[in-house]
Amino acid sequence: MTPDLGKYAFAVLGSYVVSLVLIAAVIVLSLVRSRRVRAELKRIEERLRNG
């Protein structure tokens, strides 16, 4: 199943690993920040409404 990458295995696998890690990082960071900001805004809005 896995293709025989020959002597270029490091270059090819390295590219895929580096790229996927970077893409995953930017997605995760965006999601985490989105969630945090969303929660904070909700908290502020509720406090303003009640208080």
Partner: peptide, 24 residues
């Protein structure tokens, strides 16, 4: 990426490094 990584042939000049094209 799966198509490119697993199911494409090697380039006659660049060998398996041609698979990097799908990211680069």
């Amino acid at each position: 990426l799966i198509w490119g990584f697993f199911f494409t042939p090697e380039d006659y000049r660049q060998g398996s490094t041609v698979k990097i094209i799908y990211l680069h």
